[in-house]
Design a protein around this nucleic acid. Structure first.
Length: 303
DNA sequence: CGGCTTTGACCCGCGC
DNA sequence: GCGCGGGTCAAAGCCG
């Protein structure tokens, strides 16, 4: 179920070489608009988009290629108005009830408060944030991306021996979430789905300043925090961008930031905690996962 | 002690 | 209406 939710959105970013795969949810119809380059020696890091210039982490055309809203999720977009209405009405109800909880028992108050709190928090969810997913062939479940994530849940996935983990950005005002789960068809593949847009700079800035690898290598908290995923540098919700970003949708712009060599060094010094595939000379691309391993929804037509 | 993970319970949407 | 599964909450525990 969840896998299908992913799989109809995710397409592989062909890096060639048959190494580890990085998959993004690029609609099939757009695939031919992209050009890819063989990064046979690349790791996941290397596949990440490089900013055109070393500053603004937003407005990077190259990054836009990644941050496709999951169409199945965007279906909810039209509910914006109603959800905001219901949300506000709920808040009113909540406020009202909270004010009148004085007459209830503590337990009741607690339960009601919990319900209201949840309802309050869940309504906005109806307005789904754009999502995109990566598939990476790695033994590491949680791919660090420079941001700080707090795990808030883990669920068993139906028909999968592997649980799905839920993470939320620890930044106070940032509601970005991500889910991490392993593919049932290839346990070596980790599917990471990002939802939402960071509204703050990357705390680690692992690749934010491409010319300053010190940013990662020098930070303890950044140990293993070098997976920089493109969406992470958005401040604006992704817009339909493929049509006029064609020239930018090339992975020729993706190179191995020097930052990541630090990651590698770091990881090589701690091989026990690192995927062996990441340490291979040929990197992830050599482990490129055939897209055939993805469960494809035959009914999903390219838009 | 603060931040994080774990984990059971709960809520909600959806399909039947 | 009911059951299932996904998503979230929050208390408890762990760790540096």
């Amino acid at each position: 179920m969840a896998n299908s939710a992913f799989s109809d959105q995710i397409l592989p970013v062909y890096g060639g070489g048959g190494g580890g795969g990085v998959f993004v949810n690029i609609p099939q119809g757009y695939m031919d608009m992209l050009s890819f380059q063989d990064y046979g020696g690349a790791s996941l890091f290397d596949l990440l988009p490089q900013p055109i210039s070393p500053q603004p982490l937003v407005e990077e055309p190259a990054l836009r290629a990644y941050a496709m809203p999951e169409t199945s999720e965007v279906v909810n977009t039209p509910t914006t108005n109603s959800s905001s209405i219901s949300s506000s009405s709920n808040e009113n109800v909540n406020d009202f009830d909270l004010e009148n909880n004085n007459t209830r028992s503590d337990d009741d108050q607690e339960k009601i408060a919990n319900k209201q709190l949840k309802a309050k928090k869940k309504n906005p969810k109806k307005q789904r944030e754009p999502r995109f997913a990566f598939m990476t062939k790695t033994e590491v479940d949680h791919l660090d991306d420079g941001y700080r994530w707090r795990k808030y849940g883990q669920k068993a996935v139906k028909n999968s021996p592997f649980p799905r983990s839920y993470y939320r950005c620890t930044s106070a005002s940032c509601g970005v979430k991500k889910r991490v789960e392993r593919s049932t068809e290839d346990p070596s593949i980790v599917v990471t789905t990002y939802e939402g847009t960071h509204i703050h700079p990357c705390p680690m800035m692992p690749r934010g300043i491409m010319s300053e690898p010190i940013n990662c290598g020098g930070l303890n908290g950044c140990a293993g925090s070098s997976y920089v995923l493109p969406q992470l540098h958005y401040q604006q919700p992704p817009q339909p961008f493929f049509h006029n970003q064609k020239s930018s949708l090339t992975f020729n712009t993706i190179v191995a930031p020097s930052t990541y060599s630090h990651y590698r060094q770091e990881k090589q010094s701690c091989p026990s905690s690192m995927s062996s595939s990441l340490l291979r000379d040929h990197g992830l691309l050599q482990d490129m996962v055939s897209f055939q391993t993805m469960k494809q929804e035959p009914g999903v037509e390219p838009s």
